[in-house]
Every structure is written in C-alpha cells, then in structure tokens.
Simulated scan of single mutants.
Amino acid sequence: MPAKTELSFTLQWIVATFSGFLLSLLLIEIGEKSDIGVLQAIIGGLTVAISQSLILRQPMLSLKWVLSTILGWVVITAMGVGAVGWIVPTTQQLPTRILSGLIYGTIGGFGIGFAQWLAIYQPVPLAWRWIFITAASWAVAIPIGSAVGVILRQFTQLFLGEVVGLAITWLLVAVLTGINAYKILFK
C-alpha cells in the first residue's frame, strides 16, 4: 500500500463509506425492518464494502473485506437485527428509538465488526479491536441518527427526514470507524 498519512486515510475512509451509502440509496429503498431483506442487505453491504476496499488498495485484503462485510450484513439481517443502516424504526417515540438504536446498533455493529475481523485478523495484530470499535460506532450513530430522523419527520411531515437521519448515522459511523481504521490496519 502506498504511504498515506493518518489524516489522508481517515478522510478517504469517511468519503468512501459515506459515498457507498449514498450509492446504495440508488439501488435499494429505505424502509422498516420487515421491508429490508437479505437481498437488500447484500446490495447495500456490497456498495459500502467495495467503496471501502478501494481505500485499502491491497487486492487480497480488499477481496476478503468485501466478502466478509457482505457476510456480516447477511448474518445480522437474517438473524432478525435487520440491515441497520437502511431501516427506519416503526416507533415515533424518541426514548424508544434511542434505546432500541443503542441495542440494535451494538448488536449489528458487533456482527459486522466480527465479520470484517475475519478479513483482517491474520495480517493485523490488534485486529480484534475492530469488532468493538465497529460495535461502539454503530451504538453511538444509530441513536443519534434515529433521533434526528424522527425529529425531522415530525417537523416536516416528510419521510425524507428519516433518510437524513440515516445519512447522519452513516456519516457518524464513517467518522468513528475512519478515525480508528488507520491505527488498527497500518500501525
């Protein structure tokens, strides 16, 4: 991998992750948990994983990253957690959204982080940290994004507020994982 500074890598990671989410919006529709199935999780996870893999720039690691990321999204969706980055809670009650976002974010982030760990554990000595960083990132991002989404939806009476909330979720996940990805992968 060509030498990158930590700031350069982090910014590229943020842009890649968030762009992958935006691209996924062209391919799948945001919905409630029952509306988003395994196929949508595969498509969404694939768009984000490919975007992130372009930043990794190591062919074997990039391929493993894409496959493991898709595996993570499939598993958490199939086990009932849902494709957390593309689902909107059915409740409009803010406290319930925050609590459920914390729970589902932690579980979903742990599942995705564990699956991605499978791609990086051999070449990266402290790769186990990625599992907890991803879980914590989603646990923070989903409640914040969900709260913003429900507030915007109630204020504007438009579902677009929920989409903005999900975008904020993904931006926070991109920032929180990006800050730590360089430290784990390349130090």
Results as ranks from 00 to 15, higher is better:
76 I>E: 11
128 W>N: 07
187 K>R: 14
11 L>C: 10
32 E>N: 11
5 T>P: 06
155 F>P: 00
137 S>W: 01
72 G>D: 02
39 L>R: 14
68 S>T: 13
161 G>D: 02
91 T>E: 08
128 W>V: 12
115 A>E: 03
27 L>K: 06
148 V>E: 05
97 R>E: 08
51 S>W: 01
133 I>P: 03
78 A>V: 03
142 I>Q: 07
72 G>T: 06
144 I>W: 07
64 K>Y: 08
56 L>D: 03
173 V>C: 07
138 W>N: 14
145 G>I: 04
121 Y>F: 15
116 Q>S: 08
116 Q>E: 13
136 A>G: 04
170 W>C: 05
108 G>R: 02
119 A>T: 06
129 R>E: 09
177 T>S: 05
15 V>T: 13
156 T>K: 05
154 Q>K: 13
72 G>N: 06
77 T>C: 03
102 L>N: 04
153 R>N: 10
52 Q>P: 01
38 V>Q: 03
144 I>H: 07
83 A>R: 05
163 V>T: 11
8 S>T: 14
69 T>S: 11
28 I>Y: 11
167 A>T: 02
173 V>E: 04
64 K>P: 04
122 Q>V: 14
117 W>R: 10
41 A>H: 04
35 D>G: 03
51 S>C: 15
47 T>L: 11
11 L>R: 05
76 I>T: 13
5 T>G: 15
122 Q>M: 12
46 L>S: 14
58 Q>Y: 09
134 T>P: 00
7 L>T: 15
156 T>V: 02
34 S>L: 10
150 V>K: 02
172 L>E: 05
87 I>H: 10
23 L>S: 10
152 L>A: 04
67 L>I: 10
16 A>W: 05
93 Q>I: 10
106 T>K: 00
66 V>D: 00
94 L>Q: 05
125 P>I: 13
48 V>S: 07
163 V>Y: 00
28 I>D: 11
129 R>G: 12
169 T>S: 06
10 T>D: 08
88 V>P: 01
68 S>H: 00
56 L>K: 06
11 L>G: 11
86 W>K: 08
109 G>Y: 03
32 E>V: 07
87 I>E: 07
51 S>E: 01
162 E>R: 06
50 I>R: 08
78 A>H: 02
170 W>E: 14
84 V>R: 05
134 T>W: 04
176 L>M: 14
186 F>L: 14
13 W>S: 04
129 R>T: 10
166 L>I: 08
94 L>N: 03
60 M>E: 15
50 I>A: 07
150 V>R: 00
178 G>A: 11
5 T>R: 14
101 G>D: 06
136 A>V: 09
109 G>T: 09
163 V>C: 00
107 I>S: 02
80 G>I: 10
145 G>Q: 05
6 E>W: 12
28 I>R: 12
134 T>Y: 03
180 N>T: 12
41 A>E: 07
145 G>M: 03
108 G>S: 09
5 T>N: 12
71 L>K: 01
83 A>C: 15
183 K>L: 12
165 G>S: 02
165 G>V: 00
49 A>G: 06
101 G>Y: 10
92 Q>M: 13
14 I>E: 01
44 G>S: 13
